[in-house]
Simulated scan of single mutants.
Amino acid sequence: MFEMVLQNLLTPAVMFFVLGVIAALCKSDLKIPAGLGETLSIYLLIAIGIKGGIELSHYSLNSVIRPLMGTLCLGIAIPLITFFIMRLIKMDLKNSIGLAATFGSISVVTFGTSISYLEKQGTTFEGFMSAMAALLESPAIFVSLLLLKVIENKKHPVPTHSQNVGIVASSPFKMFDRKLIIESIFGKSVLLLLGSLFIGLIIGERALPVVKPLFIDLYGSVLIIFLLIMGLMAGERLPEVRKHGMKLLLFGLYMPLIGGTLGVLLGHLTGLSVGGSTLMGVLAGSASYIAAPAALKSSVPEANPSIYLGLALGVTFPFNLTFGIPLYNQLAQWIQ
Rank of each mutant, 00 (worst) to 15 (best):
A24E: 06
S298P: 00
G276R: 13
K51I: 01
Y308I: 00
V315D: 00
G122T: 06
L272Q: 08
G281D: 03
L19R: 09
L228T: 11
V64D: 14
F16I: 06
G52K: 02
M246Q: 04
F251E: 00
L331Q: 07
E183K: 13
F84M: 11
G53T: 04
F323Q: 01
A24Q: 12
M132N: 11
I76N: 13
L194W: 13
K188W: 03
L40M: 15
K149T: 09
R87A: 08
V108Y: 09
L218S: 11
M132G: 05
I335D: 02
M129H: 09
E3K: 14
L44G: 06
K120W: 05
G187F: 06
A207W: 02
L10A: 03
P139S: 09
L223K: 04
V264L: 10
L214S: 07
E126N: 11
A284E: 10
I22A: 13
M280S: 13
D177T: 09
P239K: 13
I48H: 08
G75V: 08
L56E: 05
I225G: 04
L146C: 07
E152G: 04
L148V: 05
A291N: 14
F16R: 09
I229F: 04
F319T: 00
Q330I: 01
I97S: 04
A24L: 12
